[in-house]
């Protein structure tokens, strides 16, 4: 039974404070998670998990603004700095102590680049939080639901893996699905980029003989995965496009770890 009728509870920090409450954790939704149709579903899956576990969280809502990651990677330090300084001011004003992000790029920027500019909060990626919730027994999975026995392969996002050395948390979560976790020939520290990082998401690739996401999707097809698990909205788009390119939409599904878990737990 799915509780589709249950409305998502997604308070903003401002609303909470108006009720004399404080969030234990801020959910940093990110630009993709807010505006991209595919990524919005991931945001909802994350919220479902947070709601289910009764986490006292909030979002910034209309006060949230881009972390500046794509601007910085595109070389525009001014645009990045404008974003960073305003965001930090806002977060400090709200006395935010802990943040969970739905995107490794936001995660990386908030965690690694903001502290030097005055930020002081803990940042986790949603796969890390989900892993922790499972470990603490707050999120119980009774088997893997429809994913049981299926082949799942995890595509490491560059900004979670190499950039921050988080390789195990997403895999530990996936193991809970009682599925067959298969590794692509390039994985973890040797994982191949999906092609979207470094602001490439927002432009066409330079001239070459192949698109990077095609090269990467081939890795996933080679291992006969039924599901490609992702942890980044950009990777999700790139891999989905790759699967479309090979006309394998029926065979291979691309889902974020949050979606896999909320689906398996029937949230």
């Amino acid at each position: 039974m799915s509780n589709e009728m249950n409305k998502l509870r997604v308070p903003t920090v401002a609303e909470m404070i108006a009720n004399n409450e404080r969030p234990d954790i801020l959910f940093w939704v990110g630009c993709s998670g807010s505006f991209d149709d595919r990524a919005k579903k991931i945001s909802k899956a994350i919220v479902k998990i947070l709601n289910y576990c009764n986490i006292k969280f909030a979002i910034l809502g209309a006060e949230e603004s881009c972390t500046g990651d794509p601007a910085k990677r595109a070389g525009n330090e001014f645009a990045f700095m404008m974003q960073a300084i305003q965001n930090i001011e806002l977060l400090k004003g709200y006395e935010i102590q802990k943040i969970v992000t739905g995107c490794p790029h936001c995660f990386n920027t908030l965690k690694n680049e903001y502290p030097e500019l005055g930020a002081d909060f803990e940042v986790v990626h949603h796969t890390q939080l989900i892993n922790q919730l499972i470990r603490e027994g707050r999120l119980l999975l009774k088997g893997g639901g429809k994913f049981e026995g299926k082949k799942i392969t995890f595509h490491d996002p560059c900004y979670l893996g190499r950039a921050n050395d988080v390789y195990e948390a997403p895999r530990e979560v996936l193991e809970k699905l009682d599925a067959e976790l298969v590794e692509m020939k390039r994985s973890k520290a040797k994982g191949l980029c999906c092609g979207a990082g470094g602001a490439q998401m927002f432009k066409d690739a330079e001239k070459g003989n192949k698109e990077i996401n095609i090269e990467r999707t081939q890795d996933a097809i080679e291992v006969n995965a039924d599901y490609i698990a992702t942890g980044c909205p950009f990777c999700n788009t790139m891999m989905t496009d790759g699967i479309k390119h090979f006309e394998k939409e029926e065979k291979v599904k691309v889902l974020d770890i949050a979606e896999l878990i909320s689906n398996a737990a029937d949230l």
């Binding site: 807010s34 919220v47 209309a62 603004s65 881009c66 998401m201």
Partner: peptide, 17 residues
């Protein structure tokens, strides 16, 4: 405040969509 042309005020529209 986003890489795409969406108004910042619409940032939490996804919640009710």
């Amino acid at each position: 405040g986003a890489p795409w042309q969406f108004a910042q005020a619409d940032r939490n529209n996804w919640v009710d969509e």
